[in-house]
């Protein structure tokens, strides 16, 4: 379960760069960490910290105005590359709940929705305008129910699959959605399978 996502407002960290891949978001050498929580400090690690572990002051997430921003605005193909889910957990660990880009890596996009983060895809030109708004520290506000993003006095509509929207609104992860919507179907399947292939249930019964 993640926090239900209804509305969100705050600043947006501008990342005006294309192809920010999951290796940039979560470097491979941290994959041996078994935790899922607390990964925020590794997010964008090699951009945020130098070789000695000192903060690189120029980096957007190290600036006082953006280090707690709940939004990211980024160039196209954000989250491409390796399928590692840690990339999403790390971004969530930063407190980011909404990412706006002109396009996302496919697996990263679905991993966002599995983990309570709203990815919004908008045309490249719109994203360019929003990048300026982010850089000038305007407030971003999103209303998921209305599928609307408001920045200053402008509003932008965005698309989201109905079942993904329902999951985010309720704070359901994928498992919750399946359990919520298909519990009956799963039960029925098991009843049928137990009759036709009882050997697959021998161990359940024995235990």
């Amino acid at each position: 379960m993640s926090e239900p996502f209804t509305t969100l407002s705050g600043k947006a960290a501008p990342m005006p760069e294309e192809n920010i891949d999951t290796d940039i978001i979560f470097p491979a050498r941290f994959l041996l960490i078994t935790a899922k929580a607390g990964l925020g400090r590794y997010a964008f690690h090699d951009r945020r910290f130098d070789a000695n572990g000192a903060e690189i002051p120029d980096y957007v997430l190290n600036q006082a105005s953006f280090n707690a921003a709940p939004f990211i605005v980024a160039g196209a193909n954000f989250g491409s590359g390796s399928s590692r889910e840690q990339a999403v957990w790390a971004i969530a660990g930063l407190g980011v709940r909404c990412i706006i880009a002109a396009g996302f890596g496919e697996i990263f996009h679905s991993n966002c929705q599995r983990n309570g983060i709203l990815p919004i895809t908008l045309p490249a030109q719109t994203v360019a305008e929003l990048m300026v708004a982010a850089q000038t520290e305007q407030t971003f506000a999103v209303d998921l129910e209305a599928q609307s993003l408001t920045v200053g006095n402008r509003a932008f509509a965005f698309d989201i699959a109905p079942e993904r929207k329902l999951a985010l609104l309720n704070g359901w992860d994928e498992t919750s959605v399946l359990l919520h919507q298909y519990a009956g179907a799963i039960d029925e399947f098991e009843t049928r399978q137990k009759a036709s292939a009882p050997w697959l249930y021998a161990e359940d019964d024995a235990s």
């Binding site: 041996l32 078994t34 935790a35 899922k36 889910e85 957990w89 699959a161 109905p162 079942e163 399946l178 298909y182 179907a185 799963i186 399947f189 098991e190 399978q193 697959l200």
Partner: peptide, 25 residues
């Protein structure tokens, strides 16, 4: 188990094998 909107299928899984590196999360 069910056909899902969007063309995917909900598939029943009979068996899962877990190991130390990929299962913790």
């Amino acid at each position: 188990v069910a056909e899902l909107p969007g063309g995917e299928t909900l598939l029943y899984i009979d068996r899962q094998i877990l190991h130390e590196v990929s299962s913790p999360q």
